[in-house]
Computed example of a mutant assay.
Amino acid sequence: MQRKWFQYWFNSPYYHILYQQRNNAEAEFFIDRLTLFLQPKPDSRTLDIACGKGRHAIYLNKKGFDVTGIDLSEQSIKYARRFENNKLHFLVHDMRKLFYINYFDIALNLFTSFGYFDTEKEHVNALKTFRKCLKADGVLILDYFNTEKIIRNLNTCEVKSLDGIAFNISKHVTDGKIIKKINFEDKGKTYHFEERVQAFSFEDFERMISSAGMVIHQTFGNYELDDFDQNTSDRLILICKKA
């Protein structure tokens, strides 16, 4: 079976070079706001789905919670495992495959770590696995970009120079997907990668989350947890529970 773009791009060392400036302070601020809002019990178990190098999971664990991070990228998990302890664990795992049943109090899917698959059915099936891993009163937090605003302000071409590499980035919308092409040279070799993320609207999420047996309890539009506004919000943050 042909490998999907996310199976090799997220595992590439160049992915980590391009996104090295991801902001830990922003991640910690968001986790602070979320925990204040959710008021989880001290013994709460949290699953960080598509955890990357673990910046949200590590900080949640510092706050005293039992956290498990899963990600498809072996390189990211190898890095995150350096921070493991008896209440913090990381595993290489595909979010579409079942991971424990009725076990977690909170499941997080943050920083647009969704929308990667080809069909809506695959996305609904992933949401169903998120649901199954939660306890009866568990909560799913899904943090996506606000598609409306992203498309309206799409920066079609840019060059980012990092670690001596000029990343040529172009973006366009095709067949309901926001496609980012990343081209560059390093040590005399040319590389081509891409990211393909579904341009899901709030209504799309409503439909898929309902199909997965959950309901949206609350929506926020940024990491300060202000109300969601389709025209102005940077994020679409959904607080979901089992129906």
Rank of each mutant, 00 (worst) to 15 (best):
A25R: 13
V139A: 06
K53Y: 04
P13A: 02
V159N: 01
F205I: 06
N146C: 06
E158T: 07
E148S: 15
M95S: 04
L142N: 06
E28D: 10
D186C: 10
D163E: 12
H93V: 03
Q39K: 05
F117K: 04
A57E: 03
Y8L: 00
Y14M: 01
R33K: 15
S201R: 13
D105Y: 02
G64I: 07
L134V: 10
L18Y: 00
G176H: 13
W9M: 10
I106K: 10
G64M: 04
A57V: 08
N183T: 11
M214I: 12
D204N: 14
N11I: 08
F6T: 08
K63I: 08
D43F: 09
R152F: 09
I169E: 04
R82N: 14
Y79I: 09
R131K: 15
Q39W: 01
D94Y: 08
F184M: 02
V124Q: 04
T46W: 03
L60H: 04
M208W: 12
N86Y: 06
S170M: 13
D105K: 02
L72D: 00
L72T: 04
D43V: 01
E195P: 01
A25P: 00
A243R: 13
T219N: 11
R3H: 13
K149C: 10
I150V: 15
S76C: 07
R33P: 04
G64V: 09
D226E: 14
I58G: 03
N24Y: 13
K189D: 03
T46M: 14
I151H: 05
T219C: 14
N11Y: 02
A212V: 10
R96W: 00
T129D: 03
L38V: 09
Q218C: 11
R131L: 11
E203T: 14
A166H: 13
N109C: 15
R33C: 11
P42K: 15
P13W: 00
D43P: 07
E84D: 10
A107F: 02
I31S: 07
E74K: 12
A243S: 14
I209K: 02
H123K: 03
N61K: 01
R33M: 05
I77D: 01
P13T: 06
F145C: 07
I49L: 01
S76N: 08
L236F: 10
D143A: 03
I216D: 04
G64N: 11
T119Q: 12
E158I: 00
P42G: 14
G164F: 05
A126Y: 00
D137G: 05
E206T: 13
F111I: 02
D137H: 13
I106P: 12
I101R: 05
Y191N: 05
I141G: 06
Y103S: 05
K63R: 11
T147W: 01
F29K: 11
K53W: 00
F29I: 01
H89I: 03
L98S: 15
F10N: 01
A25S: 09
Q198R: 15
I49F: 01
M95T: 08
D163R: 11
